[in-house]
Simulated assay, not measured.
Amino acid sequence: MATRTDAPTRREQILKEAARLFAERGFHGVGVDEIGAAVGISGPGLYRHFPGKDAMLAELLVGISGQLLTGARRRLEEADGGSAEAVLDSLIEGHIDFALDDRPLITLHDRELDRLRDSDRKLVRQLQRQYVELWVGLVREVYPGLAEPAARSAVHSVFGLLNSTPHLGRPGSLPGRAVTAQLLHRMARGALGAAAGPEAPEHPARA
């Protein structure tokens, strides 16, 4: 998948359109010819890039799990001694970017993860566990009184909240990306603060 500023390669274009079509119509409801037509090449031409639909699905789901983990690690490194609260805000912002910009991948994960080969599915789960544990450690720095099991539950709950974006309606029906991002950020911080209990200090999300 391309970074936000890179021009997408043909392979990345194929993955983007495959994700959109799989999310809209289901994995088995989309043919190779349709994916090819969406990027302007013949269906058989896709086989120069991928051996089949299964490979596209695996790259999409393994790829986004790896990107989330890599992005979170990069944000931690870039913090370079910054406050734990600021780093947590940065992690939330990164996940919100994913939730708003890659909504088809959330739908794909929910519907199609079990279609992956065992090895690919295990890799997705491994990457996701590492991502969760990174968050759990940081959440416990911001809220020191929060026990590890409660922190883990809170993190999973926040992911559920942020990953609800496919149910918010079509992108054009939202109140605007910036407004939606700020709302999700406030809700995420509010949920984490609530998990820490009434004694926890308030940490309002940044606008």
Rank of each mutant, 00 (worst) to 15 (best):
A181V: 02
L57E: 08
V158S: 03
D110K: 13
E112K: 13
R121W: 01
I96F: 04
P149M: 08
H109Q: 15
A99P: 07
R170W: 10
A84P: 11
W135V: 12
P144T: 01
R73Y: 10
I92V: 15
V142G: 03
Q128N: 09
L116G: 14
L184A: 00
S119P: 00
L134I: 12
P149K: 12
H185E: 05
R117C: 09
M56I: 00
L184T: 00
E59H: 08
L174A: 11
E85Y: 07
P149W: 11
L60Y: 05
L162S: 08
V139Y: 04
L61G: 11
R111V: 09
A151D: 08
V139M: 03
M56L: 04
L174H: 08
V179E: 00
R73M: 09
E133D: 14
P51I: 05
L168D: 03
L100R: 12
Q126E: 13
Y143T: 01
S164R: 06
G71T: 14
D89L: 02
D80Y: 12
G82F: 01
A151W: 07
L91M: 11
P166V: 09
M56Y: 02
A55D: 07
T107Y: 00
S157D: 13
Y143F: 14
T180Q: 03
R152I: 12
E78A: 15
I106L: 05
G176L: 06
H95L: 13
V158D: 10
G137N: 06
S65K: 05
V132T: 15
V142Y: 00
V62S: 05
S164Q: 09
T70F: 14
L100A: 07
I64Y: 11
L60F: 08
L162I: 06
L57M: 13
V142E: 02
S173I: 01
E148Q: 14
R129G: 10
D101K: 15
R140V: 02
G52I: 09
L88E: 11
S173G: 10
R115S: 12
Q130W: 04
P104W: 06
P144D: 03
E59Y: 06
S173Q: 13
G63W: 11
F98W: 14
N163I: 04
A86R: 00
V179Q: 03
I96D: 10
L105P: 01
D110Y: 04
L105C: 04
L76F: 14
G137I: 03
V87I: 14
R177F: 07
H156K: 10
L108A: 04
H167M: 11
G176R: 07
S83V: 08
R103A: 13
H156T: 07
G66A: 09
V179D: 02
R152M: 12
R170I: 08
S83Q: 11
Y143W: 11
S153D: 09
L60C: 04
G71M: 15
D80M: 15
P51F: 00
P144F: 02
R73E: 14
L123E: 13
D120L: 10
